[in-house]
Simulated assay, not measured.
Amino acid sequence: MESMEIKSTLGNNALNNWMATTPGIEDLPLYKLALPGTHNAGCDWQASYALIPGAHWVACQHKSFHQQLNNGARALDIRLVLTSKGDGIDKLRIQHNGFLSSRTLGDLVTDINRFLSENPDEFIVLDFHELKGGDQPFDFAWFNKLMMHFLRDRIIPAKNRYSSLRQLKDISRTQRVLMHADWHHDLDFEWFNDQIEHAWIGTQTPSASDLQKYITKVMESPPSSYRPWSLSATSYSALGGPVDIHTHLDKWFDPANSDWLLKCNIVNVDFIEESQLVSFCRTANLIKARRL
Rank of each mutant, 00 (worst) to 15 (best):
A233V: 11
A199I: 06
V177P: 00
F99R: 10
A75S: 05
R103S: 09
D87G: 11
F115K: 10
T83G: 10
L15R: 14
F271I: 05
P120A: 11
S230A: 15
V243L: 12
K145Y: 08
F123C: 03
N40M: 01
F150W: 13
H39Q: 06
N144H: 05
E197I: 03
P206H: 06
A199C: 13
D90Q: 08
S258A: 13
D139M: 09
I171L: 09
Y49F: 14
V218Y: 01
C281G: 02
L69E: 02
N285T: 08
L292I: 09
F192K: 03
I89V: 15
Y226Q: 15
W183I: 05
I201Q: 04
Q167N: 11
Q167L: 11
I94M: 15
V218E: 00
T205I: 11
W45K: 15
Q95T: 07
S164K: 08
K169Q: 08
T203K: 15
T205V: 13
D87K: 14
W57K: 11
T203W: 05
N119E: 14
F143Q: 03
I52H: 07
F280Y: 10
F65S: 01
W200G: 03
P53V: 10
Y236V: 15
G86Y: 06
D107Q: 09
Q136D: 06
P53H: 07
S221G: 03
R152P: 05
I287Q: 02
G42T: 13
R152G: 15
F253V: 01
G240R: 12
I25P: 03
R161D: 00
V58D: 04
H149E: 14
L165Q: 06
P53S: 04
A141I: 10
R291F: 01
K132T: 12
K91M: 12
P228A: 05
L131N: 05
A41C: 09
N113T: 10
S225H: 02
T104K: 08
T9P: 03
A233Q: 05
T9M: 13
T216L: 06
F280T: 00
C60M: 06
L30Y: 01
L187G: 10
T9H: 07
A55F: 06
S64M: 08
L80K: 00
N71F: 02
Q204N: 11
Y31W: 06
N13T: 15
N119D: 07
V267E: 02
L35W: 00
I94P: 03
D182T: 12
S3T: 15
E26H: 07
V278K: 01
P206R: 14
L108T: 11
S8Y: 08
S117A: 14
T205Y: 15
D77E: 09
W260V: 08
G11Q: 14
E190Q: 14
Y49E: 05
V81F: 06
L292E: 08
E118L: 12
D135H: 05
S258Q: 07
L249I: 15
P222H: 12
H39L: 03
K288W: 01
I124L: 04
S221N: 15
A256V: 11
W260K: 09
P120F: 09
P53Y: 04
N12L: 13
L262H: 02
C43V: 12
D111Y: 02
A289D: 03
A50V: 09
S275W: 03
A14M: 08
V109F: 04
G54P: 08
W142Y: 12
R290A: 14
K91G: 13
T283V: 13
D135W: 07
S258K: 11
A284F: 00
S163L: 13
A181I: 09
F115T: 09
L80C: 00
T21Q: 11
I155W: 05
L76F: 12
